[in-house]
Design a protein around this nucleic acid. Sequence first.
DNA 1: GGTCCATACTTGTCCTTACAAGATGCCGAT
DNA 2: ATCGGCATCTTGTAAGGACAAGTATGGACC
Lengths: 242, 242
Amino acid sequence: MKESLHGVVAAQLRQRIRSGSLKVGELLPSEAELCEEFAASRTPVRQALATLREEGLISGGQGRRSVVLDAVPSQPFESLLSFTTRARLTGHSPGQRLQEIALRRPQAAVAAALEVDAEALVVQLLRLRLLDGRPAMLERMTYTEAVGRPLLGADLDAGSIYALLTENGVELAAARHTFDAVSADEVDAQLLDVEVGAPLLRERRLTRDAQGVPVEWSEDRYRPDVANVTVTNTRSVRSAQL
Amino acid sequence: MKESLHGVVAAQLRQRIRSGSLKVGELLPSEAELCEEFAASRTPVRQALATLREEGLISGGQGRRSVVLDAVPSQPFESLLSFTTRARLTGHSPGQRLQEIALRRPQAAVAAALEVDAEALVVQLLRLRLLDGRPAMLERMTYTEAVGRPLLGADLDAGSIYALLTENGVELAAARHTFDAVSADEVDAQLLDVEVGAPLLRERRLTRDAQGVPVEWSEDRYRPDVANVTVTNTRSVRSAQL
DNA sequence: GGTCCATACTTGTCCTTACAAGATGCCGAT
DNA sequence: ATCGGCATCTTGTAAGGACAAGTATGGACC
């Protein structure tokens, strides 16, 4: 896969920021200087800067040189989807234990969210996520039948669902996450090893493919002392990481 | 303030999507058609499309026409900052009651987050936020002295802090939000009108200005039955030409 | 009927040029 | 010494041209 020029510039700058060669608070080279350095026109240079801005790494503003805001990029898309990626980025070792996988008819609310008929079949998973061996999060995921079928035969304790879906031609493109807090019920308490009634961070997520068709609905519950969710937004965009 | 061409195109398309003139799942006009319609070159058209893509409204992909993914944009920067904006967008009437404003020396953790000396003075606010007259959220905000001074004299139950800071030349540029869940303590319980121990959604936020200097630290607690937080993220094929 | 392929369409990348608009610093006038 | 104002640097916006690369579509062929 040939890398685009703006991709190369972005990667280079990211690397300089991560390595400390460009420190937080420091001014970036001007666009003109970057053009010369990479023998590029302003177009790819500006594209690269826009990318870093989206990642929350640098600031911007008319007439003002950009400033390094942060050293760690908040990975864009996957990071809010893949628990595994998030964990690795923060230096923890992720684990998982599938509790249940089923093909069944969904509750009304879930069917509505996925925009399928209440009579349609869906694939539902209940999975416990671990961080450094300790229970961290409980996932209740629902997939439309066509999307979820390949999951039924797979070894879900081994690979990532995200990767599995991609292999099967499902292209996750956009997700909407809603956060609130709930009390642990008995199932939560037992699996997450907390008291009944303990506060848990709840994330409800609807993921769509590139055509805008809903493919995944998930309700996740986090132990707040073990895992939390971080979102960064810049003036223009938002992205996220754990 | 003169609106840029790409801003006009983006606003137009956004309006069409919101009004249903472009339905979810439908194909957008091709770039060439948009160029003709707005008598523009591809540059501003592509910029507008990139903006909508960032807002999660449309998809994208080489060789493929864009598809409308969602009808409501996930608001950009202000929405994750301004409770008032968020409330209005969802059709609720926001309110607020300032409980306390003080100039004092910060706790060590807060001083560290704001990167100020523990001996330095900061401005701290405790404010209750209401939705349709009901307690919804409790804010504990801390500002560096220089930034917070103008707040001491102002009528904080009337205007928005965000607007007040902007008027005073403070330009909020990037924010990092961390979400988890906590149990309500006595103060929370009394002000938010819940039981002690009830689960609350906690948001901790560090906001920086365009130079990357931390200016605001806040710890907010939400009643989960009244308010929650929604984030959208998109797999942006790394933006368009700018 | 189904498969394969050429072709047209559409978006991605990149260059060049030009001007507008905000930021900054220097210098002269007061 | 202070204050404006001007020159200059920087980024934002926009046009227009060119080619690359992925997608979709229809027709020829089996």
